[in-house]
Write a protein that binds this DNA or RNA. Structure first.
Length: 308
DNA sequence: CGCATATCCTGACCGC
DNA sequence: TGCGGTCAGGATATGC
């Protein structure tokens, strides 16, 4: 399941193999892939053809490529969300179509194609106009991929918060907004309008590292604890990114989620019954939010005033 | 409006 | 071998 580190691996692959190339034609092979593009698939084809891919940018789990017209101006971006099972692949024209091939872009240089493959069709593609960011820019100093395209993002992504690896992320603002919520801590971490890029896997891992229970009420969470969760998110995502960055082939823009490489490093997620790496207590699995939460019963005791 | 839940989808897996 | 049930979960529509 692609979360922030997996999407960043994909972004880097696009930066290496797609940015700077001119798209000759676009093709969408499944109606669901463009369901978020309100003007319809024909419009998406038109607006992502005969353009040059100017950059590859990410915020949280959203990925986009500003598309430059003949004058070099980019007013639109090709926006991709991988959903649960989406993959972006860079492959030669002779490679057979994948069973779940949903979209394809051919390039004017006749080099490898870009393909979107998605078994479960939770992912999607849209062409969206670029608009200024609400908080006015990336903050300038970092390596974050959004920095090069500065203060712009697709209009349909404007409601998504910055992610923990973004140098312009507002730590104090996050803690303040978190404490205004009346909910449980993990619910809040999964809310992409508060902090983006966090899914079930990294939420569980960060909570384990911070020794906090998923149902800890946000309203009374100390600021220091909120900042510790943020720090844990940054650590685990950076480690996963480092692990993922070593394993992908140069012509394969890999997204295999955590199953490919980082699963060996998971302390809690998917580890039901196995000993907690810190204290040896068997990791427990709880049904929560229509999915599973994994935690250590000893390191992460359920608070007496647990939210739900 | 804030918060919680139902829903979309397909393939792997399990017990019988 | 097949069959029904369960599970995986990101984002959003809907409901309270």
């Amino acid at each position: 399941m692609p979360e922030l580190p997996e999407v960043e691996v994909v972004r880097r692959g696009l930066a290496d193999h797609v940015v700077g190339r001119r798209v000759a034609s676009a093709e969408f092979l499944h109606p669901r892939v463009t369901r978020r593009h309100v003007e319809g698939p024909a419009d998406a084809v038109a607006r992502s053809s005969a353009v040059t891919v100017a950059d590859a940018v990410r915020r949280g789990k959203y990925l986009w490529m500003p598309l430059a017209d003949a004058s070099g101006t980019a007013t639109d971006a090709l926006l991709v969300h991988l959903g649960m099972s989406g993959q972006l692949l860079v492959e030669g024209a002779d490679a057979p179509d994948e069973k779940h091939l949903r979209a394809r872009w051919r390039f004017a240089d006749d080099g490898p194609q870009l393909r979107f493959v998605d078994q479960r069709t939770f992912g999607g593609v849209a062409v969206a106009p670029l608009v200024p960011t609400a908080d006015g820019g990336p903050g300038g100093r970092g390596e974050h991929p959004e920095a090069s395209w500065g203060a712009w993002l697709p209009a349909s992504v404007a409601h998504i918060a910055r992610d923990p690896l973004d140098p312009a992320f507002d730590d104090a603002g996050f803690a303040r907004r978190l404490r205004l919520r009346t909910t449980g801590l993990k619910r809040a971490l999964l809310d992409q309008t508060l902090v983006s890029g966090v899914g079930n896997i990294y939420a569980d891992e960060a909570l384990w590292r911070a020794r906090l229970h998923y149902a800890r009420p946000t309203r009374t969470l100390p600021v220091a604890a909120a900042l510790q969760v943020l720090s844990a998110l940054r650590d685990v995502m950076a480690e996963a990114l480092a692990a993922g960055g070593t394993s992908f082939d140069s012509l394969y823009v890999d997204v295999n989620g955590a199953s490919g490489y980082f699963d060996r490093s998971l302390a809690a997620y998917g580890q039901e019954g196995r000993p907690c790496p810190r204290c040896g207590t068997p990791i427990r699995r709880d049904a929560f939010m229509n999915r599973s939460s994994f935690s250590c019963p000893r390191c992460q005791p359920r608070p007496r005033n647990a939210h739900l």
